[in-house]
């Protein structure tokens, strides 16, 4: 029974078991461990090749047991590489989806779950989407609004978190806790996705 690739499997399991659409904290420790393990395999391969050359045999004529050992180490490195790529790729997908869910501002507690590079990735992806939506060189419309076709222009919302005054197209609204307001849909949507207000049907 071999333990090769077990750490890699734990890493992928980590993201596989998380709830859909959420981002679990970046597992820096395990990622490092998998990289270290791969380096260890690399050293083993070099050692084996060195041993073979020391005996004076060419690599083509190496004993089958040496060849098997090198192959095992090599496969283990490829497996670890795949695990890291699967892990990072899945996270990158979810980070991109975040831009469409929560908008341009990364919620503080969520930012803690991302690695430094992932935060940078989010900022840059967000900037790209903004540029596409912009008036200059872009389509000039907010494409993240209304994922489903709206029926009404206005929606009724109840305030869940104290937010002070909000300036809207029709004037200012005092977002005091537990008050109910009728807002323009496009103005209400960011507040709803952030969880500041909830929709009343």
């Amino acid at each position: 029974m071999s333990n090769f690739g077990d750490k890699a499997a734990t890493l992928v399991q980590d993201i596989s078991q998380s709830e859909k659409g959420t981002i679990p904290p970046y597992n820096d420790e395990l990622v490092r461990a998998v990289v270290d393990e791969s380096n260890e395999h690399h050293r083993s391969i070099l050692r084996l090749i060195g041993d073979i050359q020391e005996q004076g045999t060419s690599l083509d004529a190496a004993a089958p047991e040496d060849a098997a050992a090198i192959l095992v180490h090599h496969q283990a490195v490829l497996r670890n590489k795949r695990a890291l790529l699967v892990y990072l790729n899945e996270r990158a997908d979810r980070v991109r989806a975040l831009r469409w869910e929560v908008g341009t501002a990364l919620p503080e507690d969520l930012g803690e779950s991302l690695s430094h590079s992932e935060r940078g990735y989010f900022q840059q992806y967000s900037a790209l989407v903004n540029r596409y939506q912009g008036r200059r060189g872009g389509v000039g419309i907010n494409i993240t609004l209304d994922p489903t076709p709206p029926k009404e222009h206005k929606v009724q919302v109840r305030v869940l978190q104290e937010r002070g005054e909000l300036v809207t197209r029709d004037g200012t609204v005092d977002l005091a806790k537990n008050t109910v307001h009728l807002l323009w849909r496009d103005e209400a949507q960011p507040l709803i996705t952030e969880g500041v207000v909830e929709m009343v049907v």
């Binding site: 975040l98 489903t148 709206p150 029926k151 209400a188 952030e194 969880g195």
Partner: peptide
């Protein structure tokens, strides 16, 4: 009628933090 809801990620984080106490006051 479509209902707009809070983002998955925000909801999950809130659950993790508040641990159930959230919501009763409102």
């Amino acid at each position: 009628t479509e209902k707009l809801t809070v983002a998955h990620t925000v909801k999950a984080n809130k659950k993790r933090r508040a641990g159930g106490a959230y919501g009763s006051n409102q």
